Deep mutational scan, measured.
Amino acid sequence: DWEDIVRFLRKLFELGEEVVIGDWHNHHREEIKRLIEWLEKHF
């Protein structure tokens, strides 16, 4: 279910905002944000 995936990604992203998950999070933050925005537009 796409909504569950979007919710999971958003939760992960919000957690990442508070607890910076090292370089991985910083590197992928923009991609995650773009992916969430893309999914919201399409689903």
Rank of each mutant, 00 (worst) to 15 (best):
W24Y: 06
N26W: 08
V20F: 13
I5M: 07
H27L: 11
F13S: 01
R10T: 13
F8S: 06
L35M: 04
R29D: 04
E14D: 04
G22H: 12
L9N: 00
R7Y: 03
L39M: 03
R10Y: 13
D4Q: 07
I32A: 02
E3G: 09
G22V: 03
R34N: 04
K41D: 08
E14Y: 03
K41M: 09
R10N: 13
K41G: 07
V6G: 02
W2H: 01
H25R: 05
D4T: 11
H28P: 06
F43G: 02
H27P: 04
E37T: 07
L12R: 00
L15W: 08
E3H: 10
L39P: 00
K11H: 07
R10S: 10
L35G: 01
F8W: 13
L9Q: 00
E30T: 08
H28T: 06
G16Q: 04
I21G: 08
H27I: 12
I21D: 08
N26S: 11
R29V: 09
E31H: 11
K33G: 06
G16P: 03
V6N: 03
D23G: 09
E37H: 06
F43V: 05
W38I: 06
N26K: 14
F43H: 06
R7S: 07
R7H: 06
I36V: 09
N26Q: 11
R10W: 15
H27R: 04
D4G: 06
H42K: 13
E31K: 14
E40V: 14
E40Y: 13
E37F: 04
E18Q: 14
I36E: 01
W2I: 03
I21W: 09
L15D: 02
V20G: 10
H27G: 07
K33D: 05
L9W: 02
E30K: 11
N26R: 08
E17R: 14
L12S: 01
D4A: 11
H28I: 15
V6S: 02
R10H: 10
R34E: 06
F13Y: 09
E3F: 10
L35Y: 02
K33F: 11
V20Q: 07
F8P: 00
W24T: 06
I36N: 01
L35N: 01
E14R: 05
D23E: 03
D1A: 11
D4S: 13
L12N: 00
E31Q: 11
G22C: 11
I5F: 13
E40N: 12
E30A: 12
K41V: 11
W2N: 01
L12C: 05
W24E: 06
G22L: 03
K11Q: 11
E3K: 10
H25Q: 12
L12Y: 03
L35I: 08
K11I: 11
G16Y: 15
H27D: 11
L35R: 00
E17H: 12
E3P: 10
D23V: 03
I5A: 01
E18K: 13
L39N: 00
K11T: 10
L9A: 01
I32T: 01
D1I: 14
E40R: 10
W38D: 02
E37W: 09
F13A: 03
N26M: 07
I5P: 00
E40M: 14
L15R: 03
L35T: 03
H42E: 05
V19I: 12
L15T: 04
H42Y: 15
E31M: 14
E30L: 09
K41Q: 08
W2E: 01
L15K: 02
I36S: 02
R29Q: 08
R10G: 04
V20M: 09
R34F: 08
V19R: 04
L39H: 01
F43K: 04
L39G: 01
G22Y: 01
F43T: 03
R7Q: 08
I5H: 01
E17V: 15
W24Q: 09
L12D: 00
E14H: 05
H27A: 11
K11A: 12
E17M: 15
R34I: 09
G22T: 04
D1S: 13
R29M: 08
W38E: 05
R10L: 13
L9T: 00
K33W: 11
W24D: 07
I5R: 01
K11N: 08
I32W: 11
E18I: 11
E37N: 03
L39E: 00
I32L: 12
E17I: 15
K11L: 14
H27Q: 10
F8L: 09
W24F: 09
R29H: 11
E17Y: 15
V6I: 14
L39Y: 04
V20S: 06
G22W: 04
D23H: 05
L39C: 02
L39Q: 01
V6E: 06
L15S: 04
I36F: 14
H28D: 06
D4W: 15
D1Q: 08
L35D: 00
I21Y: 02
H28N: 03
E14K: 11
V19D: 06
R29S: 12
I32M: 04
R34G: 04
I36Y: 05
R10A: 09
E3S: 13
E14N: 05
E37G: 11
E17T: 14
L15V: 04
L15Q: 02
F43E: 02
I36G: 02
K11F: 15
I36T: 03
I32V: 03
E40Q: 12
I5N: 00
G16N: 04
W24K: 09
R10P: 00
D4C: 09
K33M: 11
D1W: 15
H42P: 02
F8Q: 06
V19Y: 03
G16I: 15
G16R: 02
L12P: 00
F13R: 02
N26C: 12
L39S: 00
D23S: 05
H27N: 08
L15I: 07
L9Y: 01
F43Y: 07
E31A: 13
F8H: 07
E31G: 12
N26T: 10
L35E: 00
W38M: 04
E31P: 03
W24M: 09
E40D: 10
E30C: 09
G22E: 09
H28L: 15
E17W: 15
R34V: 10
I21T: 14
E30F: 04
I21P: 10
I5S: 01
G16T: 12
K11G: 07
L39D: 00
W38V: 02
D1K: 11
E40T: 13
V20A: 08
I21C: 11
N26P: 13
R10V: 10
W38K: 07
E18C: 03
D4V: 13
G16K: 04
K41L: 05
H25Y: 14
L35W: 06
R34A: 10
K33I: 13
V20R: 07
N26F: 08
V20C: 02
E18W: 13
R7V: 02
H25T: 07
I36A: 03
E40S: 11
W2K: 01
N26V: 04
I36K: 02
R29L: 14
F8E: 06
E3I: 08
V19F: 04
E40L: 15
F43N: 02
R34W: 12
E14V: 03
H27K: 12
G22M: 04
F43A: 06
H42I: 14
I5T: 01
G22I: 08
E30M: 10
W2D: 01
E14P: 02
I5V: 07
L9V: 02
L39A: 04
V6W: 15
L9M: 02
N26I: 06
D1N: 09
L12K: 00
D23L: 09
E31D: 09
E30Y: 02
H25W: 15
R29T: 09
H28S: 06
D23N: 07
G22R: 03
L39V: 07
L15A: 05
I21N: 12
I21M: 10
I36R: 02
R29A: 12
E37V: 08
E31S: 13
N26D: 15
L39F: 11
W24I: 10
R10M: 12
E40A: 13
F8D: 05
D23R: 04
E18F: 12
V19G: 12
H28G: 10
R7L: 04
L15N: 02
I32K: 01
I32E: 00
H42Q: 07
H25V: 12
F13P: 00
H42N: 07
H42C: 06
W2S: 01
I21F: 08
F13I: 08
E17N: 13
R7W: 03
L9F: 04
E18R: 13
F43W: 12
V19Q: 10
F13N: 00
H27W: 13
K33S: 09
E18P: 06
W2A: 01
R34Y: 08
H28A: 13
E30W: 07
G22S: 03
E18H: 14
I5D: 00
I36M: 07
V20I: 13
K33Y: 06
N26H: 12
H42A: 09
D23P: 02
L12A: 01
D4K: 14
W38P: 00
G16F: 15
I32F: 08
E30P: 05
W2V: 01
H25P: 14
I36P: 00
D4M: 08
F8V: 05
F13Q: 02
L9H: 00
R29E: 05
D4N: 11
R7E: 12
W2C: 10
